[in-house]
């Protein structure tokens, strides 16, 4: 595969032709923050934290680095006043849902985000879709999915599938950046497949 030369944060980089900007940066040891990205999954472009500035023939614009593929002679900037402001605002919006996520807190320190800027409405889920997509794309079971739309969107396990598959898998648990998923799963498990240890099993 042929190589493409581009510049990221002033560093000349040789990248594989099909690489995204995020992959190219990572291969050169340059870190770009992400929440919804996973190397085994199709790029989602939902969290927008990985936005970078690119310059082509004097034109500058913002793109998400997990989707945009490398181009010859591209000039990429991964930190700037504008990008930092975008990341700070995004994190502040996410804290309204997930006030106790260690991953978010670490990023907040980097970008100066105020955890309490927006009124809290803790649902713990930040809709990164990692669990949903991992279960669909990697495990191939579709045991967990999104229901409803927009601000009412939630993740939900499909009891019929979850009852068969989840107990032996649980691979999505550690992916969750806010650890809500585990709670959700335990809850679903408790409701849908009661174990009967305390005599709560349904009477047949």
């Amino acid at each position: 595969m042929s190589k493409v030369q581009l510049t990221i944060d002033g560093k000349e980089i040789q990248a594989e032709e099909a690489m995204t900007l995020l992959e190219a940066a990572q291969s050169a040891g340059i870190s770009i923050p992400t929440l919804c990205h996973h190397e085994k999954l199709i790029p989602y472009g939902g969290c927008r934290l990985c936005m970078v500035e690119i310059e082509v023939r004097g034109w500058s614009r913002l793109v998400v680095s997990c989707v945009y593929t490398v181009e010859k002679d591209l000039i990429v900037t991964t930190r700037s006043e504008k990008l930092d402001r975008i990341r700070k605002n995004l994190l502040e919006l996410l804290f309204a849902h997930a006030p106790v996520s260690p991953q978010l807190e670490e990023m907040a320190r980097e970008y100066g985000a105020d955890k309490n800027r927006f009124e809290q409405d803790a649902s713990f889920c930040i809709h990164c879709g990692l669990c949903v997509r991992y279960c669909a794309e990697v495990v191939g079971k579709h045991a967990v999915g999104f229901i409803d739309r927009g601000i009412r969107k939630e993740i939900s396990f499909v009891p019929e599938i979850a009852a068969q598959e989840c107990n032996d898998c649980k691979e999505c648990f550690p992916l969750c950046p806010t650890s809500y998923l585990q709670a959700a799963f335990v809850l679903t498990e408790a409701l849908v497949f009661p174990r009967g240890s305390s005599g709560s099993a349904p009477q047949k």
Partner: peptide, 21 residues
């Protein structure tokens, strides 16, 4: 627009929700 946001990306889903509030 908050009601009609698909909810996929944060600036639209969460940003509009806060603007609405």
């Amino acid at each position: 627009l908050t009601d009609e946001s698909c909810g996929k990306c944060v600036p639209c889903r969460e940003g509009l929700r806060q603007m609405d509030k």
